[in-house]
């Protein structure tokens, strides 16, 4: 499903080149829920952005569903992104002038594929994320938890191959964070949705099947939830 080979990313900061990712290799299977954890500046968000085609690597390959993202043009990556990927951001990133329904429908509008069938899917998603009755409300008038639910529905509207979530609970309190993680888990289990989630929250990481620990631009370790006492291990790692 997702294959990352020798992925390297460098940024130019002033006169200096900074290597943020250092030859990362990673495979994610279809239907897997993977969390990527690491301290600030470890390169995890950069990895996610590269997987989402928001940027191009300096070296290495990214394959999603057999397609090489790094070999696509900017326009091809954009179209691939809206058709095959779903994004959930830390600060929701909803469009303030649009309603809940319109925000969720945005990727379909961008693709010009808002059919009756898809409209039905949107209504179902609104129900699934628990926002029935709010579909005509302006997105920026919702609470943080509600906005993140809209973001999740938007990310799933085009039945993406992969859902990419960058710190989805970062701006939420514990109750809302749990709610969001529960939703993600439901979609993962019921629809076998492949999810890649970047987080620094041990609690959130615990919802994933596999946790990839990142440090200094590379993978330090991979931990499975089935391993005993992984939480303590993660806590030590993050410390």
């Amino acid at each position: 499903m997702i294959k990352v080979s020798n992925l390297t990313k460098e940024f130019l900061q002033g006169q200096e080149r900074t290597r943020v990712l250092k030859g990362v290799d990673l495979n994610i299977k279809k239907g897997e829920f993977v969390a990527i954890m690491g301290p600030s500046g470890s390169g995890k968000s950069t990895l996610l952005q590269l997987m989402g085609g928001l940027d191009v690597p300096t070296a290495g390959d990214i394959q999603i569903d057999g397609k090489y993202l790094n070999k696509m043009s900017e326009k091809e990556r954009t179209i691939f992104r809206r058709q095959k990927l779903g994004f959930v951001f830390q600060n929701y990133q909803l469009l303030p002038t649009l309603t809940v329904e319109e925000n969720i429908a945005f990727p379909l509008h961008a693709d010009g594929k808002l059919t009756k069938e898809k409209s039905r899917v949107i209504q179902e998603l609104i129900k699934a994320v628990g926002l029935e009755g709010l579909h005509r409300k302006r997105a920026n008038l919702l609470s943080g938890g509600q906005q993140q639910r809209v973001a999740i529905a938007r990310a799933l509207v085009n039945s993406p191959t992969v859902l990419l979530a960058d710190e989805p609970t970062g701006n939420l309190d514990r109750a809302n964070a749990e709610e969001i993680l529960r939703l993600l888990t439901v979609f993962h289990r019921e629809n076998r949705q492949t999810i890649v989630m970047v987080t620094h929250d041990i609690f959130a990481a615990g919802f994933a099947d596999r946790i990839i620990l990142f440090r200094d631009g590379g993978i330090d370790q991979v931990v499975s939830r089935e391993e005993g006492d992984y939480a303590k291990y993660l806590a030590n790692f993050m410390a």
Binding site: T78, R81, F89, L94, D111
Partner: peptide, 11 residues
């Protein structure tokens, strides 16, 4: 955000 969600530059 629009660009991240798949709006092309032309759009």
């Amino acid at each position: 955000t629009m660009r991240a969600l798949g709006f092309t530059k032309q759009q």
